[in-house]
Amino acid sequence: MGWITTTWHRLGSPRWFYGMMAPWQTGFGIAALVLLAVGSVWGLVWAPADYQQGDSFRIIYIHVPTVIVAQSAYMTLGAAGLVLLVWRMKMADVAMVAIVPFGMAMTALGLFTGAVWGRPTWGTWWEWTDARLVSTLILLFLYFGLHALRQAIPAAESAARACAVLAIAGLVNIPIIKYSVEWWTTLHQGSTFSMRRINMPAVMYLPLLVNVIGMYCLFGYVMIARMRTEILRRERDTSWVVELVRRPDVR
């Protein structure tokens, strides 16, 4: 293990990332807090009810941002996996470690809110025969798998590469989730938003847009915060971290 850690120290510049990203973390954190508060109150209180679903449609203001970001997080994971395998950049692995629990939580929240919405709207919590629902469940299992795989392999470098391979192989699920409602007949409705048309008036989609952007800011915040924490954990024996802990006011 020792030589791996030493080699890693010579690669990349986690110290630079740690210092450089501190203001970004604060910025994303504040933006997420403000946007999610505004978007959620706007959507859950002020936006009009739907002509058919009534108030139960409002869960869209949580459901759609979480599942969008869950998929974006997975795509980021795939990109980090590519960088890790090709360029062997250790910061790419730090990014993967940072993303997995967040993506897992967002996918779980998306599935939960979808089920809660499906019960009054469709008349069922869950349908095993629906391609959109099952492909999203597979996304959750991919996140579980990535987390478990890292725990299962003791050597840090091998674990990182194995996770990168799994992340890239799992990327194929993302277009399947997106196009499932077009390729097959499903209980889940088609996309409300597309390049050609938006089947929702502005009074309804503006708060949704605010929450989607807010959720991306939350993703940015969580990713940077977790990456910086992971850097400190991995670099805990280096002089700059020891110095930082001794004098926390100096960044």
Partner: peptide
């Protein structure tokens, strides 16, 4: 044995429901 309602991708407030759907 079971009936499920399939929702479409259109959302609108009740006061707009009588008007023609946006294409």
């Amino acid at each position: 044995r079971e009936v499920l309602a399939k929702h479409d991708e259109n959302y609108m407030p009740p006061e707009l429901a009588g008007m023609e759907r946006p294409q």
